[in-house]
């Protein structure tokens, strides 16, 4: 049952992500990215992280990507040259080699990774009883209060910084 949900979502995430980096029109890239975000949101649901899934759609797919699209259209960037015609061949080769190695290095340890004994108390039963959102909220306003407040300051600074930088 889970596999039935996981495989299509994972496939969709990988395909749209690949499209993000190969399509030449930035508008299409942005739309593909939105697809990736939706797929990830579905996977979050699968992982019993309902609150995160919702936030993923609202913040990423909604707010951030809209901002991207605005800027893409504002700047009117046009198309890039095809990848295979780009000049800097050596750098491209090193980059591809590094990426392949990175993939191997990330994936191979997963196979040999011995699963640790679950330690936390947030079992499925608890989730079902109390609700994911309530759990997140409780933690956020007790144990993680200080980082949470700091986050608000970061956002404030980002707002001011963006205004200062983008002002004509």
């Amino acid at each position: 049952m889970e596999w039935l949900m996981f495989v299509p979502l994972a496939a969709m995430a990988l395909i749209t992500a690949t499209l993000v980096i190969v399509l030449r029109n930035p508008v299409y890239c942005a739309l593909s990215l939105v697809g990736t975000f939706f797929a990830l949101s579905g996977i979050y649901l699968l992982l019993q992280a309902q609150f995160i899934a919702v936030i993923q759609v609202i913040v990423y797919a909604g707010a951030i990507m809209v901002l991207f699209l605005f800027v893409v259209m504002l700047l009117d960037l046009g198309h890039e040259r095809p990848l295979w015609l780009q000049r800097d061949r050596p750098r491209l080769l090193i980059g591809v080699g590094a990426v392949v190695l990175l993939l191997l290095e990330l994936v191979i340890p997963v196979g040999s990774w011995t699963a640790r004994v679950p330690q936390g108390s947030s079992t499925s039963e608890l989730m079902g009883g109390v609700g994911n959102t309530q759990l997140v909220g409780r933690l956020l306003f007790t144990e993680f209060l200080v980082p949470f407040e700091i986050t608000s300051v970061i956002l404030l600074i980002a707002i001011i910084g963006a205004m200062v930088l983008a002002r004509r």
Partner: peptide
């Protein structure tokens, strides 16, 4: 997750458009 991450790295390396 690893596959998505590596795709992201590849995108940073091969694209020239800052937005992408």
């Amino acid at each position: 997750s690893a596959a998505l991450f590596v795709i992201g790295v590849a995108g940073v390396l091969i694209r020239r458009n800052v937005l992408v």
